[in-house]
Each structure stands twice: as structure tokens, then as C-alpha cells.
Computed example of a mutant assay.
Amino acid sequence: MDSRIILASDRFSFALSPFWYRIFPVNIDLAIKSIFGVWAGYFVVNSLRVVLWGASDHLHTLEDYLVTAIISVTVTWALYRLLAVIGERPAGAVFILTIPTIFMATGTVYLTNLILAYPMPVLDYISIAHGISPNSALSHFSDMAFVNYLILVGWGGLYLAMVNSRNSQVALTHRQNLERANRESEMRALRYQLNPHFVFNALNSVSSLVIDSKNEQAGQLVDSLADYMRWVLQDDSGDLITVEREIAQQVRYLEIEQVRFPDRMKFDVHIEDDVVREWKIPVLIVQPLIENAIKYGVARSSAPVCIAICATREAGRLKLVVANDGRMMAVASKTYGTGTGLANIRERLQGFYGPEAALFIGNGSGDRVVATIIIPDEKQMFSDSVR
């Protein structure tokens, strides 16, 4: 990996020629904007001072500031190239901004006054131009060099701070995108995990009918299952689906299961309103609850069992409830709560919504087993919770 300070992108609102990218090989936008910005600001501020106080009452003229700014831009570019070479090594940056920058600042002031004084000696020019004694000219030269040094060091600190800030932002964005991609991959893997789990339960249903010599019903069930699986596997709606479509899938599955239990299974569906109907939820999030209601409620009971699916809003969250007649026993609840389907639901909810979503299962009033999924608004999906 290159040790230089390199950004993911250099942003300009206009196109630059390749020449500029050769002059500014790294962080081109920050370099150009900061270098020209600092020295343009230097020239403008000091020009206002000349205009307000008058050239005769001010120590420097517009010509002085213009020449200083032009030369300083070149010197600052040289400092930028040195910082680009040392890259992200703090010790190197500190060294560059001390020893070499002192010589750069001194050279800038000397070259500026050399141009303005030509062919007069620099110290003589300073003495005459600023109305000071020859003995004080060297001290004045040192003061100007020190001010220039402070400006160069200030620019260097500003440039490095901006580079570090952007690199940190790029790294943070990259990490968030990577985490999001990993999370979405996990969600898809969990969703695909449901397909073999569902097929396994469906084949058990067919097997049960064959064992009971209900071949016609078994054939009908196979055809219905084939249509259902084709519908599910060909669904291109992505990882999210509306409550209305999700429940419609489960109703179709319940109709298939009624072939096995024509006299013992009934179902009822209630969706509160249109807002709830259009609420986006993970695909097949309700499927394991329906399977458990049939496996532990209908299949183990000799009495008729009603499975109820209800979708409502409560405190700004979606509440999905799957309930069936019966009671969860201590031993059964352990089996009921640790299966592949329920673990899948919890992991998918955690991945999509973090702690904002939950799954609860228990005995309700009136001999009912109730499974409840709480889902927040879609805007809270993949929210970064405090860890």
C-alpha cells in the first residue's frame, strides 16, 4: 500500500486537465483550494489594510503583498510535495513543518525583497522602504520571515487536518458500507435457509398423506406445493415485501395444509388498515410461525384448531401476531422456541432492525398460544445501535 496520503476521490465541480494532476498528485482538490485560498486571503486582507490606512502610512505596499503571495504559492506547493512524500507519518510531518519550513519562509521573504529591491541590496531596500535604520533592517527581515513561517506552518496544519478528516470519513463510510453489505448477505443467507426448511416440512405433509393412503389428496398437495414454491422462488420483490403480500403467501400455504387437516384446521386473517397493508417487512418472516402453529397446534390436537393472523399498529410499530388454540407446555416450549424457524426469525430481525424489533412467544388468554413479532418503521432498518 502506498504510504502517501491518498484519498478515495478528489472532488471538483469542474474538470481539470492532466497537467494539474501531475503538479498535484495527491489530494488535488484540498491542495489547490487550501494553497490558493490561504494566499488569496492573505493578499486580500492586506490589500484592504493598504487601502484603509493608505500606502504612505502602511509598512508595505500592494506590490509587496502581490509579489509575496505569488512566491509563497510556489513555496507552499513545494511544502505540499514534501508532505505528500512523507505521507501519514506524524514524526515526518512535524519535522517538515519545523526545520525545512524555517528555511522556506526565510527564502520566501529574501526572494520577495530581492525582486523588489533589484538592483539594490536587500537590507538597504528594507531600510529605505520602511524608514528604519540599517541596524534595524535585519531585525525587520527576521520578523517578516517569522510571520511567513507561521503562515506556512498554519497552512500545513490545516492541510493535514483536512486530509486526516476526509480519510477518516472515507474509512468510516467504507466500514459502514462493508458492514451493511455483510449484514444484507447474512439476511439473504437466512432467507434462503428457510427454503429447505420449508420443503422439509412440506414433504412431511405429503408423506403423512401417503402413509394414510390418501393418494389423491397427496397428489393434489404436491401440485399445490409446486405452484406455491414456484411463486415464492420466482418472487423478485427483494428482501422486503408488504404485509399484504406476505400474509397472502401464508394464506396460500394454509390452504395447502388444509388438504391434510380438512376438518381440524381453520384460519382467520385480519389486517388493520391500508397503512399496515403497505408496511414493508422481511420476506417469509411469518412463515416459521405458521409452520409451528400447524406442527404443534393442529397436528398434535384431535380437536379443531383455529389459526389467527393479525397485523396491527401499536405505538408507531407494526405488530404481527400468529395465534392458535392450545397451550405451550414446559417441555414443548423448549422445542418450540429453539427450532430453526424461530432462530431464523430472531436473527433476521436482529440483522434488519437491531434491538428495535423483537419476537415473543407464550401462552395467551383463553387457551391460546401467541407468537408476536414487533417491527419498527422501515426507516429504522439497518440502524446503527450503540454497542
Rank of each mutant, 00 (worst) to 15 (best):
I70G: 07
V50E: 02
L30V: 00
G157D: 03
V109N: 00
N164C: 11
S127V: 08
S34K: 06
A93K: 09
I71G: 04
I102C: 13
L152E: 14
V67M: 11
L79Y: 06
Y80C: 12
G156I: 05
L30E: 01
E63I: 10
P134D: 10
D64R: 00
T112P: 08
L83E: 05
A105F: 02
T74Y: 12
V38P: 03
Y125W: 13
G87D: 04
F36M: 06
N46F: 05
N113S: 07
V44Y: 03
V94Q: 02
G41V: 08
S34A: 09
Y125C: 01
V163D: 13
L79N: 11
H58I: 00
M162W: 12
Y118M: 00
V38F: 11
T108P: 09
L16G: 04
V163P: 05
F36R: 04
L30N: 03
N46T: 02
L82F: 09
N27C: 14
G156N: 05
Y149P: 07
V50D: 02
A55N: 02
M120I: 08
A91P: 01
V51L: 14
F103E: 04
A117I: 03
N148Y: 08
I115F: 05
S47D: 01
Y110P: 05
L48Q: 14
L16I: 01
P18C: 02
D124Y: 03
A91T: 13
M144C: 03
G131A: 06
S34P: 03
L138T: 12
A105D: 03
V44S: 08
I70V: 11
E63T: 14
L62M: 12
P25G: 08
W155S: 02
A91F: 10
T106N: 12
V163W: 08
A129T: 06
A78Y: 15
I99P: 13
G156P: 11
N164S: 15
V38D: 01
L66G: 06
N135H: 11
I35L: 06
F103C: 05
L82K: 00
T101F: 07
A117F: 04
Y125M: 00
V75P: 05
H140K: 11
N46W: 00
L82T: 05
V153D: 01
W39E: 10
E88F: 07
V122K: 01
V94M: 07
S56M: 07
V26P: 11
N135W: 05
I23A: 14
R81T: 01
L138P: 03
A40F: 11
L114I: 03
S136I: 01
H58G: 12
D124Q: 10
I99F: 15
P18I: 01
L16E: 08
L48Y: 15
L16P: 04
L114K: 13
A93T: 07
S56I: 06
I32Y: 00
A84W: 06
